[in-house]
């Protein structure tokens, strides 16, 4: 079967020397292509600059949403960010697909910070891994109940008071 539609979305986080992250997200699909590039300052995880392009879209009108990207400068990656980005960049007068690229980048910033502890824990086996996860959950209570691995009844939750 020949595909009618294809999409490739790629996000990357690069470490900049000046205590910040360079977050790049690009999407290319059958009807649309766009990219967003943000600098996120550390340790506050605050967006200090953003630029982006709609490179191809069904309608030329979609270009009108690009200036809305500036609304994100000053935002911090944290609670409430999804609604803020969807309201200010997506929504009736914006472009939800540009908002989605920003949120993809923010999600990947969070994943970048979950990676170092996982790099230590995942190679462990059996009881050693179980205990390492229990310590990790105590340090990161936001993860408790966030997925089936950390749901009630999971061995990783044993002995953990919530």
């Amino acid at each position: 079967m020949i595909l009618d539609y294809t999409r490739c979305k790629h996000a990357s986080i690069a470490e900049l020397e000046e205590n910040s992250l360079l977050v790049r997200v690009a999407v290319e699909d059958t009807f649309y292509a766009a990219e967003v590039e943000m600098v996120v300052g550390l340790p506050a995880l605050e967006v200090t600059s953003i630029k982006g392009k709609v490179k191809r879209a069904f309608s030329d009108k979609c270009q009108q949403a690009v200036p809305l990207l500036n609304e994100v400068v000053g935002m911090r990656v944290g609670s409430g960010i999804i609604k803020a980005v969807n309201d200010l960049v997506g929504g009736p007068s914006g472009c939800p697909r540009l908002a989605d690229l920003i949120l993809e980048g923010f999600n990947d910033v969070i994943l970048r910070y979950t990676m170092p502890p996982l790099r230590e824990i995942v190679p462990l086996a059996g009881q050693a891994q179980l205990e390492a996860y229990q310590v990790y959950l105590r340090k990161s209570p936001r993860l408790v109940g966030s997925c089936i691995a950390f749901a009630e009844g999971s061995p990783y939750r044993e002995g953990l008071e919530v």
Partner: peptide, 16 residues
């Protein structure tokens, strides 16, 4: 240096 990357690839077909 890159510290994290994520790629998602989607294909859509219409079998019927």
């Amino acid at each position: 240096m890159l510290s994290f990357t994520r790629t998602k690839v989607i294909g859509v077909e219409s079998p019927k």
